[in-house]
């Protein structure tokens, strides 16, 4: 399947939509690969791969990848540079997590950034480096996750061979000087976690009321050829099911877009937060049909091919 990205902008719509186009003759080569994120098993067992579940779910051709606290809230975000569009992807960490401290080193001599030193905390080692991974540069900041603990007991093995210790409260970034001083650089700013996007598990979540046992909700965008192509198949079911089309438009643009696709049943704007909930990596895949039974989501289909079998 091919994809292009169409922006439904100019109408304050916050996201992009991915619409398939005609297939290219050139095949992919280890393309469209799902990113990987393994959560380590503290008991030394097999790690759990959770990239998709955790929202690190890009299919772009990834190259470099850096983790850093970009928004100052004390947890690590992920920034990925891809080969092609989208060339940058920012995965903002919105999840619950433990406490943490961040440590910057100030050596008494030698290289000013403390690279080459190692920070120890609760038996764990954290290297101070300036480059890591694939062609990636990083600040020489050590990020120490603490779980539920409220403070870190740090020991630094400096490049000079000297060792110093410091107790640091969770929730702050500190500068540790080789001569022993501890300086608080910043306190993490708690960011209000955004509420979860409302997944349209029910028709009610879309502001709709079921009028039949089966309701088919079509999502559409002006110019989306596959959306137009599914209109005849939907129309053929009009006598059996309730049909509603939700567009990535508002106001008059919505009416015009529906008309251009030949939609002759009720239409409404797709709520932005619902579009976000259905999006993958910031993009809403189209076409998309949501099938409800008695108002409860039963199936999500990328087109009408299996629709008759599903509603049977």
């Amino acid at each position: 399947m091919a994809q292009t990205t169409s922006a439904a902008r100019g109408e304050a719509f916050p996201r992009t939509a991915s619409v398939p186009t005609s297939a290219d003759a050139m095949m992919s080569f280890s393309g469209w690969e799902p990113k990987k994120l393994w959560r380590g098993n503290p008991d030394g067992g097999v790690a759990t791969e959770c990239a998709f579940a955790e929202g690190f779910d890009s299919r772009a051709d990834g190259r470099s990848l850096v983790s850093a606290d970009l928004d100052g809230d004390g947890d690590l975000d992920l920034l990925m540079r891809n080969r092609a569009a989208p060339k940058l992807q920012l995965f903002e960490n919105q999840g619950e997590g433990g406490n943490a401290v961040e440590v910057v080193l100030a050596p008494d001599g030698g290289s000013t950034e403390g690279e080459g030193a190692v920070v120890y905390e609760a038996g764990r080692a954290f290297p101070v480096v300036l480059a890591r991974g694939f062609a990636s540069g990083v600040d020489p900041v050590v990020h120490v996750g603490l779980g539920a603990r409220a403070a870190a007991s740090l020991e630094v093995r400096w490049r000079s061979g000297a060792r110093t210790r410091a107790e640091v409260k969770a929730g702050r970034r500190v500068r540790l000087h080789e001569h022993g001083a501890v300086e608080v650089v910043s306190v993490f700013q708690d960011k209000a976690r955004e509420p979860p996007r409302p997944f349209p598990s029910t028709l009610e979540a879309l502001g709709l009321t079921p009028t039949r046992d089966v309701t088919v909700v079509q999502l559409f965008l002006e110019g989306c050829k596959p959306c137009a192509a599914e209109v005849p198949a939907l129309k053929a079911l009009e006598a059996k099911v309730q049909l509603v089309s939700l567009g990535l438009h508002e106001g008059e643009a919505l009416t015009l877009a529906a008309k251009s696709l030949g939609i002759s049943w009720p239409v409404a704007p797709l709520p932005h937060e619902v579009a976000d909930a259905l999006s993958t990596s910031g993009s809403l895949p189209l076409p998309l049909l949501l099938v409800y039974r008695k108002g409860v989501l039963d199936r999500v289909l990328p087109g009408p091919a299996a629709l008759e079998a599903v509603i049977r």
Binding site: D24, F29, E33, G62, F134
Partner: peptide
């Protein structure tokens, strides 16, 4: 965490 994928075409 892994960034992967060589060449994705349509």
């Amino acid at each position: 965490a892994v960034a992967n994928g060589y060449l994705s075409r349509p």
